[in-house]
Amino acid sequence: MKLDYTLRLADDALIMGHRLGEWCGHGPILEQDIALTNTSLDHLGRARSLYQYAAEQFNQLPTENKIKAFSSVALQETILAGKNLDEDDLAFLRDGWDFRNHLLVEQPNNDWAYTIARSFFYDTFNYYFFSELIHSSDESLAAIAEKSLKEVTYHLRWSSEWVVRLGDGTDESHAKIQYAVDELWMYTGELFVMNETDKETLRQGIGADLNKIQPLWLDRVKAIFEEATLNIPAGKWMQQGGKEGRHSENLGYILAELQFMQRAYPGMEW
């Protein structure tokens, strides 16, 4: 359960980091290009710590459990050869349905407003989530949370200001950010769904209580939207599935790009 939990956090960080990294060289101006890639590197740094920790947990499992854990033939061959998995194996050789990231983070960049709205929803969640996770009974997760919270505090400040800037900006920028918010809203519900992994890790004092985080998240979103003159979307129906490995087609494209090199040239370094 803890492994599943760790992997979800790692997958969120990797996929979000990858999405923001896609802006590299395409930012509207040099300064914002650098801002996004800096943030991307924060996410990737967190992904590394979490994958390392996940690999450590995985390698202690009995072999029969290891074999059943992931469908990827590349991983199974490594396991059958008696080798330990490392952070790169988990990031580059797992198949899509073994990824546990939220649907929100795999949504495409589309335009600047869309990217900002996605970041804002995720950063707000991360802020309250890691504020809880620093109290985890698991020392490694608590330590990662503590480091992440400093980074995430800045991410939230940055994306909140952009939401206000666009929302309370010109007619065009307002329309674009409101559209993005409306489109992405249905992916925010999954952030607070307590699945089996969440319930079990919470019982063990390892995981965070998402029911506690949801009202905090909503209050912050409402406050920023008010300042930004944006409306909270009326839609109540929420998408979910990412945490169970059921993803949108977006993840397949991300992994095709992200994993191509290691799949085609196993063990390649540069």
């Binding site: 101006i29 040099l30 300064e31 914002q32 650098i34 801002a35 800096n38 400040r157 940055w158 200001e161 800037r165």
Partner: peptide, 20 residues
Amino acid sequence: SLHAADAQMAIENARDVYTR
């Protein structure tokens, strides 16, 4: 030097461009 729309953004851009 750098470009920014307002003072707040200038601080943040400076943070990202010059202190990373």
